[in-house]
Structures are given as C-alpha cells and as structure tokens.
C-alpha cells in the first residue's frame, strides 16, 4: 500500500467509526437519561440516518427552498465577497505599500476600522444594503479586504530594494517595475492571506444570512430556521454542507497558488 492510500484508508476508517458511534449511541435511550450526557440525544445532535433523510428531502425538488439553491446562494456570495475583497485589498496594499506618505496618512483609519468587530457591522450593513445578496457580499468584503490588504502591504514593503534597483538599471520604468518586480514579489505574501480569506468570507456570508431571512437564502438561513423549529437534522445538513464548501474552496486556492507560485522552491517538481 502506498503512503497516500494508507493515509486515505485511515481517514475513511475514522469517519466510519465516528458515524457508526454517533448512530449507535443516539439510539440508546439510557445514555440521554444519564446526568451530563443528556445531549447525546437525537433531539440535540440528530442521527446520521435522520440527517441523510433530511438531506435527501432538502436536496429534492419537494422542499420550498432546496439545499442546492441555498448552497448556491452561499457559494455565490462568498466568491463575490472574496473576489471583490481580494482585488481591492491587493490594489490598496500595493499602492499604500509603495507610497510611504499615503501609508502614514491612512494608518490610523485602517487600524481603527480593522479593530472594529465586523459582526457589529451586520445590522448597519443590513440597514443599508437590505437582506439580499449584496449585504452578504459587503460583509464578506469588509473582512477579506483587510486580511489581503495587510499582507499585500507588508509584501509590497518588503520587496528587496536591490531587485528594484537592478531592474531600474536594466531600463525598467516605474510601471514596468511594478508589474515585473513588485507585484510578483508581493503576490507570495498575498497568497498566504487567501486561505484564511476564503474561510473568513464564508463566515461573513453565513453571519449575514443569519440575519438576512429567506430573501437572502443561503445555508446560514437554514441554520437559523432550524434553530427556530428545533430541527437538529436540518442544522447538521447545513453544517456539513458548509464544511464541504469550505474544503473545496480551500483546495481550489491551493491549486491556484501552486500554479502561480511554481517558481518557489517548495513547489518545485510539483507543477
């Protein structure tokens, strides 16, 4: 067995054991009556079989709002928030990173806004942008922007001065040097921010959906709705779906990184 296959087999085994234990333990009434173990009860944590049934139902056309529609809404808002956040954060990081005076001027504003807990902005953003897609995107953006901004800023500042000088001696204009030296150099830093960014974008979107109501749709809405109806199975369906979405997005970024940063020694031979 190769190392890869062995790791995969272990992962699968752990998953099976956990799911089996979950199904089995929640079937034993006596456990839920034991003090301290009351939560091992299908009422609270549901059961794999019940979750699978709800999953099938929500995924079918019979549900008023299908799982696919909700997942799509969440994915869409996350990706938009991520894209807008990354591009604006990257641009702002480059500009301020290369202009000392601008950086000094904006510093207190950036620090102040960034230390604001973003959750506190949710009501305000909802008030301004309503309950739909836009509010969720804006919320994700306020988080992603700063993560990407700070990393790119640092990256743009720490570009080796001698790389810039030697490019200048080779005849590079400011614009050409930006494109061929500063951007690629800063990109390595920006990429380090992308994996956390996508998870934070997802957090922003889900929080937005908590408040957004049905018009915003999304898996966050499913969670809040399940809380209202005390439906643990639906909540688990939403959580599992969010987990899968998160993993897929993170893998996508890893792929992109591997392509764009293939010059780095750590990616050598893997491109």
């Amino acid at each position: 067995m190769t190392e890869r296959a062995r790791v995969l087999a272990w992962r699968l085994a752990i998953l099976l054991v956990l799911v089996a234990a979950w199904e089995w333990l929640t079937g034993i009434k006596a456990i839920a009556r034991t003090p301290g173990l009351y939560w091992i009860d299908p009422f609270f944590i549901s059961r794999p079989s019940a979750i699978a049934r709800r999953f099938a139902y929500l995924a079918s056309g019979n549900a008023r709002l299908t799982l696919w529609q909700m997942a799509l809404s969440t994915i869409q808002s996350t990706l938009w928030g991520f894209l807008v956040g990354v591009s604006t954060g990257f641009a702002a990081g480059l500009v301020l990173g290369r202009h000392d005076r601008l950086a000094r001027i904006f510093d207190p504003y950036i620090v102040a806004f960034n230390s604001l807990p973003r959750i506190a902005l949710v009501p305000l953003i909802t008030m301004i942008f309503g309950f739909g897609l836009l509010a969720k995107i804006v919320l994700a953006w306020t988080i992603v922007f700063f993560i990407v901004f700070f990393n790119t800023f640092q990256g743009a500042r720490s570009v080796d001065a001698d790389l810039i000088h030697s490019a200048r001696f080779l005849g590079g204009s400011d614009r050409q040097i930006m494109r061929t030296v500063i951007v690629p150099s800063a990109l390595a830093w920006t990429f380090a921010a992308l994996t956390p960014s996508i998870s934070f974008a997802l957090i922003g979107v889900v929080v937005g959906e908590f408040l957004g109501g049905e018009s915003g749709g999304g898996l966050g809405y499913l969670i809040i709705q399940s809380l209202g109806t005390l439906n643990a199975a639906d909540m688990m369906v939403a959580l599992i779906s969010l987990g899968v979405i998160g993993i897929v997005m993170a893998l996508g970024i890893k792929q992109l990184e591997r392509r764009l940063l293939r010059w780095r020694p750590e990616y050598r031979g893997r491109a």
Binding site: D160, D162, L163, A167, L170, G172, Q176, T180, V181, R264
Partner: peptide
C-alpha cells in the same frame, strides 16, 4: 547580491531588460 528575479525562468530573466 543575487538579484535575479526568482519568479522568472532563466530565459525570461535574461530577457527582462530587453522587454523593458
């Protein structure tokens, strides 16, 4: 100091001044 651009291949490093 070593100032070749690590994100460019050998050929593209040598070409950079001509590109500029």
């Amino acid at each position: 100091k070593d100032t070749v651009l690590p994100w460019r291949t050998v050929a593209r490093n040598i070409a950079v001044g001509l590109e500029y």
